[in-house]
Structures are given as C-alpha cells and as structure tokens.
Simulated assay, not measured.
Amino acid sequence: MSTCKALIIPADTSQPARVDSITADLETLQHLVRGNIEAVSGDNWHFYLNEEGKILGLEPNTRAGAMVLQLTGDLQDVYCGDVVFLGETPDGDEADVPAKLWGLLALMEGSQPPAH
C-alpha cells in the first residue's frame, strides 16, 4: 500500500479543502467519498468520487468542477460529492497530488494553499 498526499475537496463549500496523507487503497478511497469510487483522469493527476453521487443526490462539487475546467479547458460532467485528488507516477501508480493542483485551488479561492 502506498501512502500519498491527497487533496480532499468536500462538496460542501463551508468545509475547507485539505491536503492529508492517506493510504491510497480501495477501502480508504471508498470511505473518503462515502461509496464506490469512480476515477476522472488528467495528465499527471486524477481524482476519485462517489460513482453514484448524482443518483444519490449528493451535492455538486463546484470547486472540483472549476479545477477540472482550469486544468483541462473542458468540463464534461457535474461531479457530485466529496473528491480526492491524487497524482500518478509514469507507471500509473498512485502518487502525491501535484503541488500545482492545491496551489490552483488556493488561487481560485483567493486563499492560502490548504494545510498539509
């Protein structure tokens, strides 16, 4: 099991985003998103969310959507529920979230990067 620094962004905007060290295994990821996971991938990053978030009526995660739009220039979906951003190695293994992601979130929110 790998331990990674993850950027965790709650859907509830009154809760702060944070960078936490997590064990990047299925059980931990399912616990953080409160259900089965679905992955959304970028260049050297990806995030996990609850695969049934829309069906369950979870709150849209506007911060995650705004980050995907900033990072890719394209937004194909509405992401619902809490999300867990991680980085990835060239081999596709889990890695620490790239600093540019939590820096981007801080910039978008006009605040300091989340505590880690």
Rank of each mutant, 00 (worst) to 15 (best):
T13W: 00
T13I: 08
S14D: 10
S14H: 03
Q15G: 01
Q15L: 12
P16R: 01
P16C: 02
P16S: 01
P16V: 04
A17S: 14
A17L: 09
A17C: 08
A17N: 03
A17E: 00
R18Y: 02
V19D: 02
D20S: 05
D20E: 02
S21R: 02
S21F: 01
S21Y: 00
S21N: 00
I22M: 04
I22N: 02
A24N: 03
A24V: 10
D25I: 09
L26K: 01
L26N: 02
L26S: 02
E27T: 00
E27S: 07
T28R: 06
T28F: 07
L29S: 02
L29M: 12
Q30T: 09
H31C: 03
H31F: 08
H31E: 02
L32C: 05
R34C: 11
G35D: 01
G35T: 05
I37F: 01
E38H: 01
E38C: 04
E38W: 05
E38G: 09
A39R: 04
V40Q: 01
V40T: 02
V40N: 00
V40H: 00
V40M: 03
S41F: 13
S41Q: 11
D43E: 13
D43K: 14
D43T: 12
D43A: 14
N44M: 10
N44V: 14
W45V: 05
W45Y: 12
W45L: 06
H46L: 15
H46R: 15
Y48A: 11
Y48F: 10
Y48S: 08
Y48V: 11
Y48E: 06
L49S: 03
L49T: 06
N50F: 06
N50W: 04
E51T: 05
E51C: 15
E51W: 03
E51R: 04
G53Y: 08
I55R: 15
L56N: 12
G57D: 08
G57R: 10
L58W: 09
L58T: 09
E59R: 14
E59V: 14
P60R: 07
N61P: 15
A64S: 14
A64P: 11
A64E: 06
G65F: 07
G65M: 15
A66S: 13
A66F: 06
M67E: 01
V68F: 04
L69T: 13
L69H: 11
L69Q: 14
Q70W: 07
Q70R: 15
T72H: 12
G73L: 11
G73K: 12
D74T: 15
D74Q: 15
L75C: 14
L75Y: 06
Q76H: 12
D77P: 04
D77C: 07
V78R: 07
V78W: 06
V78L: 06
V78F: 08
Y79A: 07
Y79Q: 09
Y79D: 02
Y79N: 12
C80D: 01
G81E: 04
G81S: 13
D82K: 13
V83S: 05
V84P: 05
F85C: 12
L86G: 04
L86Q: 03
G87Q: 06
E88F: 11
T89W: 11
P90Q: 01
P90C: 10
G92L: 06
D93T: 13
A95E: 03
A95K: 11
A95Q: 07
